[in-house]
Simulated scan of single mutants.
Amino acid sequence: MIYKKTLSLLAVMAFAIACSTNPFTGKKTLALVPNSQILPMAFEQYNQFLAENKVVRGTADAQMIQRVGQKIAKASERYLTANGYAGYLKNYRWEYNLVQDEAVNAWCMPGGKIVFYTGILPVTQNEAGVAAVMGHEVAHALANHGQQRMSAAQLQQLGAVAGNLALAKNPENQQMFNQYYGVGTQVGVMLPFSRSNESEADKIGLTLMAIAGYEPMAAAELWQRMKQQGGGAPPEILSTHPSSDTRIQNIKSWVPTAKAEARKYGVTSFKK
């Protein structure tokens, strides 16, 4: 009973004091792991990844990745400064690299460390398509989604420990708890949480690419092409990402808002 009360108290304290504010939504988010710990680790892992993979340099595609990345980063800074978050990016170390790999993927580590795989370029097709992906990936970093996922995983582990301690005198119930807790929290909490982060990154990314001067509808067209790639995606309820249809529908509904936001910064034409 003492252990159970202690763990419950720790969980309440974690929620109460370990939060940060999402600068795009104004909502409080989990921040059990501080950025002072996350960023140095991310930078080290990024450098190690580059050392172990073939980085494409000096080509037109590599230059495009750099150019688009810089525009999205500048759009981020303009938005954050205008909305009372000047200095938010002070610990970011922007870097944009194209890596030779057939995977249709791109990612951004905490602190602005971005990689595009060459395999995604046939799907992006043009600079606006690259901007759609870049905006989405940068949005993950700006909204501290990596920090949130790490924090959620820690709370999931805390729940497992609390359950096992509470059922320590009943091995049969403890075994049943362990059998269902992992699946239940994964499908009922962790996967929806991940999908929510992805949708949030889509929405934020649209705003960033619009402020950077790119046509936000290009993001919907990108996901149409992604859908055509096929690949047998799992049902949305069992996926870390929303389905392509959900993303396309959401993006189309958000485009007018993204353009309206961009106009606040004097952007009235959008590159397709």
Rank of each mutant, 00 (worst) to 15 (best):
A42C: 07
N144C: 10
A18G: 13
T21V: 15
P171L: 07
A139G: 03
P34S: 00
P192R: 09
L32Q: 02
R67P: 06
Q147R: 12
G58Y: 09
S151Q: 04
T81Y: 11
I17Q: 04
I237R: 09
Q37P: 01
S151C: 13
S76E: 13
Q63G: 00
K259I: 08
L155N: 03
A219C: 06
A18L: 10
S20D: 14
Y92C: 07
I17A: 08
T118E: 04
L167T: 04
I237N: 05
H136S: 00
I204M: 07
E261K: 15
V12P: 08
T246C: 01
G84D: 09
A42L: 01
G112M: 06
Q48N: 12
T29W: 01
T240I: 01
P256E: 07
M176T: 11
M217L: 15
A141N: 07
V189R: 02
M41R: 13
N22D: 15
P23R: 02
A132G: 12
L9E: 00
S20T: 13
E200A: 03
C19P: 04
R57M: 11
S269A: 10
V187Y: 10
A210R: 04
L158A: 08
W223R: 05
G163P: 00
Q174P: 04
V187L: 15
W94I: 06
I248P: 01
F49M: 10
A128W: 01
Q66H: 11
L121A: 03
K28H: 12
A82N: 09
N170G: 08
T207Q: 15
D61P: 03
E261W: 02
F24S: 02
A219G: 00
K54S: 13
R247I: 00
E172C: 06
A14F: 11
A153S: 09
Q45P: 01
Q100E: 15
C108R: 03
C19I: 14
G182K: 10
I120P: 04
G58F: 11
Q157D: 10
S151W: 03
I2V: 13
P23H: 09
V68M: 09
A82T: 11
V99T: 09
V133Y: 08
Q174E: 14
Q249Y: 10
D101Q: 06
E236Q: 13
I65S: 04
S20H: 03
V267K: 05
Y88C: 05
Q154Y: 11
V56K: 12
S76W: 04
N197Q: 15
I2H: 12
K271E: 13
A258C: 10
Q45C: 02
E95D: 15
Q249P: 02
V130C: 09
Q175G: 07
M150E: 12
V99A: 03
A168Q: 10
G112T: 00
A73D: 05
V99S: 00
N164T: 02
I211F: 02
A201D: 06
P216N: 14
G213W: 14
A262C: 13
E77N: 14
